[in-house]
């Protein structure tokens, strides 16, 4: 009690690239085309999306789309090499969290922008040391709702526990958080309002939710100190 209902809050007053779905996977990896994803996301209230897409980018999407290439950390050297190659063609580079040591090394190298898939990994994949490197390098950690929506019972509880750990580390080390649906179908998208309600249900604060919606903009346009030549 004492908090206004989010159903009455207007999340749509926020300006551009500041309400972003941080992870969608369009066709051919999914059943929805990139243009359709952009159209549906716009209809739901997003002003941009981040798409894991390898094909030629159409120029007539309904909203701005940032391309992300996600790497899998088989070994640290390979992951860093793949991240370097990906950075030449994509706007952002992501990594699917796996081995904790490899993740720490890749994050420390500064080669990636977003870490995905922590809710599916064992506890401790993102530890306090990796969290510190994540904050120092400005790497964002993604909270993906497909881990919450597609699961039930103990698997969903495990995902929520992972979110709690991420939030605890975020509040201590202040690395950026981003919110993504992690879906390969437009039916997996949820409106910003619904995403906010779900995030609030597992303990995110309203200010954290708003910051997470707009964090992708900071990743695309990082603040650099002014250089006097």
């Amino acid at each position: 009690m004492g908090r206004t209902s989010l159903l009455f809050d207007d999340f749509m007053t926020i300006p551009a690239f500041s309400c972003t779905d941080a992870h969608v996977i369009p066709a051919p990896a999914g059943d929805t085309s990139l243009r359709r994803f952009a159209l549906e996301a716009k209809a739901l209230g997003f002003d941009s999306i981040v798409a894991e897409y390898t094909g030629a980018f159409p120029e007539d999407c309904a909203i701005p789309v940032a391309r992300i290439t996600c790497i899998v950390g088989e070994t640290q050297q390979k992951a860093i090499r793949d991240a370097g190659k990906a950075a030449r063609t994509a706007d952002l580079v992501g990594i699917y969290a796996g081995d904790a040591g490899i993740l720490r090394g890749v994050v420390q190298s500064g080669s990636v922008n977003i870490i995905y898939g922590l809710a599916s990994q064992p506890t401790g994949t993102l530890d306090h040391i990796t969290a510190r490197y994540t904050a120092e390098r400005g790497v964002a950690v993604a909270i993906e709702l497909n881990s919450l929506l597609g699961r039930h019972s103990h698997r969903r509880q495990r995902a929520i526990r992972a979110y709690h750990d991420i939030l605890r580390l975020h509040r201590k080390h202040h690395f950026p958080l981003v919110l993504g649906s992690g879906t390969n179908s437009y039916l997996g998208l949820r409106s910003p309002r619904a995403v906010a309600l779900l995030c609030r249900s597992f303990g995110m604060e309203d200010a954290e939710i708003k910051a997470a919606f707009s964090a992708v903009d900071t990743l695309l346009h990082p603040h650099v100190p002014v250089e006097v030549i």
Binding site: S5, L6, G188, V195, L197
Partner: peptide, 13 residues
């Protein structure tokens, strides 16, 4: 219960 109901509706797949 509107907010929690909204969250639960969003969780339906």
């Amino acid at each position: 219960g509107e907010d929690d109901l909204g969250a639960a509706l969003a969780a339906v797949t």
